[in-house]
Amino acid sequence: MYSFVQHILNGLAAGTVYALVALGYTMVYGVLKLINFAHGDVMMVGVYVGYAVAYAVGRALWGEWYVAVLVFGVAMLACALIGLAIERFAYRPLRERPRLTALITAIGISFAISYSFQLDLSVHAFGRELTVLPGAASRGFPDIITRTVWMQLGSDDDGIKIWNWQVLSFGIALALMVGLQFLVFKTRFGRAMRAVSFDHRVAALMGIPVDRVIAFTFALGSALAATAGILYAIKDRKIEPLMGLMVGLKAFVAAVIGGIGHVPGAVVGALALGLCEEFVAGYTSSSWRDAVAFGFLIVVLLLRPEGLFGRVQAEKV
């Protein structure tokens, strides 16, 4: 019985990370109709920025709340800037080209980021050795949040523990989902985003600063990715330059299952995917995990091509 509850808990924890990554995917897709495959790799960069900040602050201060805030803050800022740069230099010049061109570019950027992070590069500056690129080896993410048991059910030997960071991640994911929903539907900026999403040429004629709206969307999506990445790193600890590829792909699946472009849909899709994977791995064999995850996608696309929450769009011929 306890192990069943534990499985649910594990699945929700995995789903939470997918959800946060999926939110970024879905937002960019919603506005630009572009699947930003580099999103998972931006997440990875955020994790490494957080790693660097944590070590720059020093081991002695880990566990202090302001260190955690600093780690999240700097990583989000760095990722927002990277997002802006990618949009400005890679996607904007291609905006009027066929959509496939931008998609391939996105894949190119994804590999450029993840493979360049596998190089070892350090420079000698300020009297010490500074690592510029981390290299391929896995590293352990520092414990910037002191792990404590938030709630315990049953005994130590036979029972489950809910950890503070699990509650925190889940809370952050839900808060961000609500926040995004508010931003998109209740603010002036959200209206501009929706207008650009509808037709960016017409939106421009109406006086909406299209470039700025899109750039901001990318910055916001990338900052979300940084948050997701750090929560992911706190959860699983193991970080490596290729970590973004699989998570990015899974989050993409989650976003499609929920109906891409739909904010709560992405979260529901992600949690469903996380639970589905967990039960497959826990009760059958972990080798089936990815097959089932992607099989799930195919089934959803066959039965409801627009995703669970997506709206059917009539195509003009």
Partner: peptide, 13 residues
Amino acid sequence: SKGDSDFRAQLTA
């Protein structure tokens, strides 16, 4: 599988 980062399902079992 090599490269996984979440082993909780197996460990719970």
